[in-house]
Design a protein around this nucleic acid. Sequence first.
DNA 1: AGACAGAAGGTCAAAGAAGGTCATAAAATC
DNA 2: GATTTTATGACCTTCTTTGACCTTCTGTCT
Lengths: 156, 156
Amino acid sequence: MSNLADRIERHLKRILDDSQQGYIILRRGMLAAEFSCVPSQINYVLSTRFTVERGYLVESRRGGGGYLRIVRLGSTTDRQLHQAMRELIGEQISQERAYNLIERLLNDKLVTIREAEILRCVLSRESLGGETLQRDILRARLLKNTFIILCREDLA
Amino acid sequence: MSNLADRIERHLKRILDDSQQGYIILRRGMLAAEFSCVPSQINYVLSTRFTVERGYLVESRRGGGGYLRIVRLGSTTDRQLHQAMRELIGEQISQERAYNLIERLLNDKLVTIREAEILRCVLSRESLGGETLQRDILRARLLKNTFIILCREDLA
DNA sequence: AGACAGAAGGTCAAAGAAGGTCATAAAATC
DNA sequence: GATTTTATGACCTTCTTTGACCTTCTGTCT
């Protein structure tokens, strides 16, 4: 049914959830062997699913004793998160990166599924229309403005 | 004897009725094979029979592990409301009229307070920027698109 | 210290696996 | 007979998977 990349993603998220420390350390080669795939498949999963926008950080080390370390960026306090988000968004943002951010908000339960869908809809290429650059700028503004609302505690 | 498109339509609606979740997921290629037709015939059926106006939403994903997901939107009354809204919104809409609509949605408990705030924020003059006319057109598009999501049964 | 071997992980391009589009042909309807 | 609807196929885009080749680190042997 679902593809390899998705299965590896789920597996990593599961053990990440189970881990107390908020991060996991593993061998790329081992993981690849467990899933009977080439090692670079792991890199593919990491670079498409464990991005900063989605709230993850990946470190690694080569050579003997090398490893991968996947850190889940915690549900920071509102103010920190707000600042971090503003920086991640910047003056313009692509649909893909915006969707990744929404994914993270969803993961951290800062938005409901419906809210996430509304945001995705509003920030979609299709809805925004116009030129790419203008669209990316508009998207950044919308996302940053909306974010203020999501942080409002009086709306819980 | 009915034609292929109608048969595919009936088949999809039947399994959609059988499904508890309000949506189905399937492979375009598989379905085409079942009906011994070219894959693009499936797209034809989807684009003529499973439109938003008729109360359906179709999402898809390409590549390995790709799929089609057909979602049934809410009840007929919901859909009638939806149609009425589309007409009410039209091709362009002012901030004031948009806010009035949101107010009504809130009153009818079709959106939460937070969702309403998000919508107000997104549809505000300041967020949208640009020329008045362009803004009103964009606002109409955003509102209409978003409204589809509010009718989605699978997000209850 | 320097050279080298082995053990990781990284990169990138090409192949594969879906689904999407669009023009056109064929069939049905008016 | 004209128009609308349906069916097909060639070609396109997106996402995934694989493999060949590259870089970095550790440890050992001169």
